[in-house]
Design a protein around this nucleic acid. Sequence first.
DNA 1: TGCTTGGACATGTATATACATGCTAGTTTT
DNA 2: AAAACTAGCATGTATATACATGTCCAAGCA
Lengths: 247, 247
Amino acid sequence: MSKQATLHPVLPPLPGEPAYLRIKRWVVEHIGAGKLRNGDQVPSESDLVRMFGVSRMTAHRALRELTSEQVLRRVQGLGTFVAEPKVASPMVAIRSIHAEIESRGHRHSSDVLKLERVKLGETDVPLALPEGTILFHALVLHRENGMPLQLEDRYVNPEVAPEFLRQDFSAITPGDYLVSVSPIWRAEHSIEATMPNRQVARLLKLKPDEPCLVLTRLTWSGNLPATFARLFHPGSRYRFTAEIQTR
Amino acid sequence: MSKQATLHPVLPPLPGEPAYLRIKRWVVEHIGAGKLRNGDQVPSESDLVRMFGVSRMTAHRALRELTSEQVLRRVQGLGTFVAEPKVASPMVAIRSIHAEIESRGHRHSSDVLKLERVKLGETDVPLALPEGTILFHALVLHRENGMPLQLEDRYVNPEVAPEFLRQDFSAITPGDYLVSVSPIWRAEHSIEATMPNRQVARLLKLKPDEPCLVLTRLTWSGNLPATFARLFHPGSRYRFTAEIQTR
DNA sequence: TGCTTGGACATGTATATACATGCTAGTTTT
DNA sequence: AAAACTAGCATGTATATACATGTCCAAGCA
């Protein structure tokens, strides 16, 4: 916690910028420029009062907000310090296939290949429900500008979505419909690379030897198992991406 | 945006609890109990002044903090409303291979296959640096209980880790070393499924026709491009997993 | 020497007040 | 009937002030 000598100059104010934002900007820019480093003490509220010609409450608000944003760390009686960067564990966000395609400015269409009732036990579905329970099953092929991009193989617990079979899944994807009717409380995901079986390869129009990127998803709504879904994607045309911004 | 009738009683104060926290608690408990629902208008600042006997600045602070926490949504001139729940986008966490293997109680070992200088341009590295820049290159095979699990192909900007080549990467993984010496500011990730080339297939001891799960990672430290890494995993023995808890 | 006390300092909370800004609805004007 | 204005209300920002609480350090005392 080393004290800095002179950190001026104070930033030129942007027109119409509130004073507390100007102070926040000054602090983060000094951190970004390396003039304030991890653990360094930042100017106290009364320092900022002198530097910026504001009241203490305004300086206080700037520092308090940066603290709630994890940029600073404050200790009463001691001072305010630059926080250690959080070990942001990189994450890959999984978005609705519909939203994703639309956000690229492309056209999303889908073919409903199956929409039926099945008995648990006839298929390999890891939903924690009694053997023989009736499940809804949907098999939907999603296309981007006509090209197959995702094959959705989904099993649904009728208790959480009784009207599932009556939906028009060329208008709303099964995934989007489910989040709209039943709140997801818990979910398990996994992403793997596999070679497709013949049906998957044919539907996704895969080249020979082209692998599949498979997202498997198991969700619960409250205590009820809600849905089990496998989303198959062509390995040559699909990837999960994420961009992380630490500060 | 429907107005509620009577939302009292005001909560009993907890001993020593600041007034603004008591107001925040009142709001979130009313939301949790369903007495305030999505889109409902919550009491205005002056309502809260009357209900809790505080000044407007105190009520303002409570509502402002809940707004920055995405619990409420405020519109100047109109009022404050319960925010729609954020569409919790499912995320897959990417962990250090070392931590991951250890957390399974297994033994992590690695072979350093290459540790060298290369010129940018001779290889296909998307780091935004001038052609001909010297880069550090490491090729490390990670094993879990002796079985190959990840092939790490990593290029590093010497500016962010000048001592990179002098490290013992059988003791610390290149990834873990880099986060320890240079703070990551931004990262791009992608996950894809590919068929491996012969070298990758041989090193990972892949069966014929076994695909690869590849995590590609590009990071920046400050304005500097820091590292480009491709992490190859055997499709049959590896997956990325995540568990999401919404509430 | 070791303990206590008090002062300086920094943050934490709360209030009263003032003025600015944005939205709505109703009224007046054109 | 359409357009312009205005009053009322709600939030947004800023200030001056007060007192509480936590930390550190140095002076005073046993």
